[in-house]
Amino acid sequence: MSDRPLTAGEKALWQKLVETVEPLDQKRVRRLDSLPVAKKLREVKGPITAATFGGAPHRAISLKDLVAIPEKAGLDGHWDRRLSKGVVQPDVTIDLHGHTLSSAHGRLDSALELSISAGHRALLLITGKSRSSEERHREGGRGAIRAAVSDWLAASRHAPYIATVRRAHPRHGGAGALYIILRRRR
């Protein structure tokens, strides 16, 4: 906004506008004042967990109770069609680019915990394209996260909540991304 003074024509126009303005009805003002105001969100210090996110953490599952996630089971034909056409809008996108294996695993685990607590159904996991072992060796280990994701999900404490994992549509990243579809809460 400039600091220049108003011209005589602008002052006259402003005065005409001011004359047409009617004061608010005091009943409406009091009614607006009585409406609840959104409370200020509290500051969260430290790592984000299910407890700080507002949900309850799930109990850990013992290793002997873990089961592998079937690749094609768990979804009906409607979901299959929507995934293959790329019309599914993910509730959450998790981007693991630039993470080490351990930080990517921690980020995926916490994102799954928060998404399950929030009741999300579709997650988009961006990992980058997987590489062959020869390419990984030549390029310094690139693609290691993508190679490890299926093992992480199968051994995860969240495995019972995962309905399926599918390759993403090219619109959402294609070979460099995965859809994780969570089971519906009952």
Rank of each mutant, 00 (worst) to 15 (best):
D76T: 11
H97F: 09
G86V: 04
A104P: 01
V88D: 11
A111L: 05
D76V: 07
H105E: 13
K85S: 14
S84Y: 05
S103N: 03
L83Q: 10
V87L: 07
G77E: 15
H78D: 13
V92M: 07
A111F: 04
A104L: 06
R81M: 04
T100F: 07
L101Y: 07
H78F: 12
H78Y: 13
L112M: 08
W79V: 08
A111K: 02
H99S: 01
D80I: 00
P90H: 11
R82M: 10
R107I: 01
T100Y: 09
H99V: 00
D76G: 14
D95H: 08
S110R: 14
I94N: 02
D109F: 05
D91A: 14
G106K: 08
A104D: 02
H78W: 12
G86T: 06
L112Y: 10
W79M: 05
S110N: 10
D109A: 09
R81D: 11
S110H: 07
I94K: 04
Q89R: 15
S110Q: 15
S102R: 10
G77N: 12
E113M: 11
R107A: 09
E113C: 09
K85E: 15
V88N: 09
K85P: 01
R107H: 02
L83F: 15
L108C: 07
S102P: 03
W79A: 05
Q89W: 08
D91R: 08
S102D: 14
A111Q: 08
G86I: 06
G98W: 04
S103L: 01
D76R: 09
P90F: 12
